[in-house]
């Protein structure tokens, strides 16, 4: 079977470029300061800790929590605007192709340690964890939890590990004044980060699958968004290659529709009949029958006779 790995190379390039654009303020890392230019008026699609020295834009969830931290809570139209715009265009394509913390987990998962698994045991229940985080920590927690007289950004404070990775650790390295302020919270978040690092080597993107509240938001937009992966059912030979390649184990009819699909395109890369594709135009419209026959025969001869026989019997 000839795989189209080019798409995954393009995805990796997108992820790296996006990370450089949104977190490439090198001067901040060298001086232990953060960027204060006009780009921070705007939120980017992915999670982006804006207290980190490299951050050049604002984070939609950080901004949402900041709005909920105000004494008199207003409807945060600005943040909602960003979320609706990014969600309606991309859905969870943002998670698969752009998010820097997603890239970090992708790279960790490539480390050849442990037996790889797509999901945690209890996935069917655990996947709702991200909705719990969205409601419990982002919406309710940031509105009602206080430290002294000030409300706190509960998600960033207690859970989000990227702030520790890209903010605390680089800042502590160059800013001695901050080193004296390390307390229990730092070790709590460092523990979460280390736990996720180890888990990411074994499980595919555990933070995205179970904890990310922005993934929960974009998951709702997933089946409405402009960017979609389309499945041409007529051309499908039910070989299950897409399900095996899918990092979150989705069947072809669930791809792009499920809130779990990050639209990474791995299913597209392995589909032998090219019945999965970005965009709307069927690429195999006229030759479905020929392609199906050809592939079915090839599969029967080469690698998966049982499955093809089963399909023929149906």
């Amino acid at each position: 079977m000839k795989h189209r790995f080019g798409l995954q190379r393009i995805r990796l390039l997108f992820q790296i470029l996006y990370t450089i654009v949104t977190n490439g303020y090198v001067y901040g890392y060298l001086q232990g300061k953060i960027y204060k230019g006009p780009l921070k008026y705007a939120c980017v699609p992915g999670l982006n800790c804006y207290s980190c020295p490299g951050a050049t834009f604002s984070c939609p969830l950080g901004a949402l929590q900041a709005a909920l931290n105000e004494r008199q809570i207003q409807i945060p139209f600005g943040v909602l605007g960003f979320l609706f715009i990014f969600g309606s265009i991309f859905g969870r394509f943002v998670c698969g192709w752009l998010c820097p913390f997603g890239l970090f987990q992708d790279l960790l998962h490539r480390i050849p340690l442990f037996h790889k698994r797509k999901r945690l045991p209890g996935h069917k229940v655990l996947k709702y964890g991200k909705y719990l985080v969205l409601v419990g920590l982002v919406l309710v927690g940031s509105s009602v939890l206080f430290t002294g007289f000030a409300k706190i950004p509960a998600f960033c404070k207690y859970l989000y590990p990227s702030g520790t990775l890209m903010g605390a650790i680089p800042l502590l390295g160059v800013n001695e004044q901050l080193q004296s302020q390390i307390g229990g919270l730092f070790y709590w978040k460092l523990g979460i980060l280390m736990g996720l690092v180890i888990l990411s080597i074994k499980i595919y993107r555990p933070f995205c699958q179970y904890l990310c509240p922005l993934g929960a938001v974009y998951g709702w937009f997933n089946r409405f968004s402009l960017v979609q992966i389309h499945w041409e059912q007529d051309a499908c030979i039910s070989c299950d290659a897409c399900k095996e390649a899918c990092p979150v184990n989705l069947r072809p009819e669930q791809i792009s529709v499920s809130a779990e699909c990050i639209k990474c395109g791995k299913c597209i890369s392995v589909c032998p009949t090219r019945c999965l594709h970005y965009g709307r135009k069927p690429k195999v419209e006229k030759k479905h029958g020929q392609v199906k026959d050809m592939i079915a025969t090839k599969c029967k001869m080469e690698q998966n006779p049982n499955r093809i026989d089963k399909n023929e019997n149906q």
Partner: peptide
């Protein structure tokens, strides 16, 4: 966004 939120970075 232009102030370092120490709580946010832990």
């Amino acid at each position: 966004a232009v102030m370092i939120c120490l709580e946010c970075i832990g």
